[in-house]
Design a protein around this nucleic acid. Sequence first.
DNA 1: AGGCCTGTTATTAT
DNA 2: AATAATAACAGGCC
Length: 283
Amino acid sequence: MPELPEVETVRAGLEKYVLNRRISSAHSYHLRAIKPSSISPLAAVVGAKIRAVKRRGKFLWFELDREFTLVAHLGMSGQLLISSKQLPDQSHLRARIELQKAAGLAGKKSASDEIRFIDQRTFGWLSIEQMHDQVPTSVAHIAYDPFEADFNLKEVITNISSRKSAIKPAILNQEIISGIGNIYADEALWRAKIHPEIICEDLSEDEIKKLINSAKAVMKSAIKAGGTSFDQQYKNVNGASGYFSRSLSVYGRAGQPCSRCSTLIRRIAFANRSSHFCPRCQR
DNA sequence: AGGCCTGTTATTAT
DNA sequence: AATAATAACAGGCC
């Protein structure tokens, strides 16, 4: 679930609660919670003040008043919740970052809270990293996402149009364009009326342009809806589900009629993933 | 009971 | 060398 719109929802939620807060303690509870390449144990963040919460694609990071930054990736099932310290630990709690009382909030409920990293399937991680060129080490190879000012539509079109793979794996490739996962890939392809298995080289530049603009548009709508939740795995920082799943046109709708032409939506297994598309709209 | 699944990356193949 | 395809990582749901 956590693709760009879900990660952005989490990022914005975190920003609201943790900006300029100081970290009073940090603990991890699972071997896989901290990325093996992390340059320090999680405890290195204790005493640091959170200066910003940034995101590129599906990666997010906390800028600190330190030489290093705290990076987070939610993987398949990760959550970052703002939680009262009083709440009992959730199952699959992988790490806890306690925040000092916010100035002027003494006695208030939000005065005593923490960030909890919860991850059932443990593909997510936290990591302490150096910054290079505005982004942490593990983000250096990730392409701009379409919401970044430096995202270059023309360059991405040129890149995709020279490839010999199918179009769907190309837009899922985080080194070409970041943020798109299986759900929004299927939705973007449906909006642009492109079959997921068409070879990149065989698409016109206009078709690729339409596809990228569709991806950006569908993700923008999803951010507005708080992201897509199918089960209990994707939550915003307050533990609430997003409601964009009701707006999906193809993903998870196999056997249901296409909203444009009423043809039944098909689901095929392809490149280790399932793809949903309208066999009539998407040739 | 076994197949399925939102993501990334290392390895292998071309 | 660069690009493409595949497998592996976990665990709980149906």
